[in-house]
Nucleic acid binder design. Sequence first.
DNA 1: GCCTGTGAACCACTTCACAGCT
DNA 2: AGCTGTGAAGTGGTTCACAGGC
Lengths: 223, 223
Amino acid sequence: MAERAQRPDSLDAGSQVSKAVTSRLSLYLRELQHLVRDGHDTTSSKRLGHALGITGAQVRKDLANFGQFGYPGVGYRCQELIGQIKKILGTNRPWAVALVGAGNLGRALLGYRGFLQQGFHVAVAFDVDPALIGSTIEGIQVYGMGEMVSVIAQHEIKLAALAVPAGSAQQVADQLVEAGIHGLLNFAPVTLSLPDLVHLVEVDLAIELEQLSFAVVNQHQKN
Amino acid sequence: MAERAQRPDSLDAGSQVSKAVTSRLSLYLRELQHLVRDGHDTTSSKRLGHALGITGAQVRKDLANFGQFGYPGVGYRCQELIGQIKKILGTNRPWAVALVGAGNLGRALLGYRGFLQQGFHVAVAFDVDPALIGSTIEGIQVYGMGEMVSVIAQHEIKLAALAVPAGSAQQVADQLVEAGIHGLLNFAPVTLSLPDLVHLVEVDLAIELEQLSFAVVNQHQKN
DNA sequence: GCCTGTGAACCACTTCACAGCT
DNA sequence: AGCTGTGAAGTGGTTCACAGGC
């Protein structure tokens, strides 16, 4: 609120922004939320960048992809910029997420508060285990795989998190595509192949540890 | 075994290799392991790249950073290349990992098989909850935070996974540094500041979902 | 013929530096 | 004076294309 009237509603359409930019956008959002919690009203590109180890110019260039959010001589108003970034990322509205695989990792995701805070909530879960189907975990109903199409349609779910064993990941991913999912967060250590219209983000925890191991073995300086 | 005698032992030292290269190295490793499981003895840069959606030239350039592993006219011997990449990443020897925070996410990591498979195993866990301290979860002993220095020294642990709430992450990270940890895998949604000698990899699950949300809202083509 | 390894060309991202606004 | 927004310059990463080995 209290946005300047002459300020355009931004969002210069999807003029092909790189992945590097959007993941920094998420970092800016996180940092801005911390700043607000610490009582700051405004901040500068330099300050924001410094907290994340990047230059002020980088911050300004990134934001310039989507509009003009700053005030020369002042910086950025934290609350306003938070709102703008959320609008860009699409998290100004809540997202229902389907969790597939209620094993170890799946259950952790069900109970993870970090999602809720950023506008995501797990609405339903799916598993193959008959012992789980029909039960609720952390208040979330667990369905069998066969109910995927109807449940996802009924709840109008667009995003799914895939936490099943590597061996069945591709097959389950295909089912999810069939069920009309638009985006998939894959935790299984396999490279999935999906139709072009379905978006994919991969998280492989073993790979992250390997990156750490490499850095330690090669004693890289952090800068 | 059966490495060619005239082939140098590779590892052109840490001549400043980019992070993009090393994370693809992990992907090559994963794909090669799948190829072996499917009965392949050799593969080509083109095939390997195709499975991951990148060009053959990229694969060859990446590997060229570390030595000459291919055979003109033949390609790469899967088992041999697996061994070389593991040596580069440092996962040819097992790593003991300390888990800090035995909450939801922490417990999932304790039970996650994907780690073991790639040469990592959680050796010990730490938590603040008195109800957990002294117990074992998935066969892993849970210690109190105060025992960190001695336990980590005793087990000669170099890597830690941080799965504590955002509010205490920096403080716990400082303790881990104090305890002599070399690398930290951070799951808490905060940007940690660590001494230059300690390596850091950050995984923020909310951020990954935001990337997905952005892609879906802006209907980006995958290519 | 097939495939690697690699300089050269190309492209993308980051940093610089400054005009212009507050 | 302070800070944004942005063209220009610089840097780094990817792709091309081909010489050389199997």
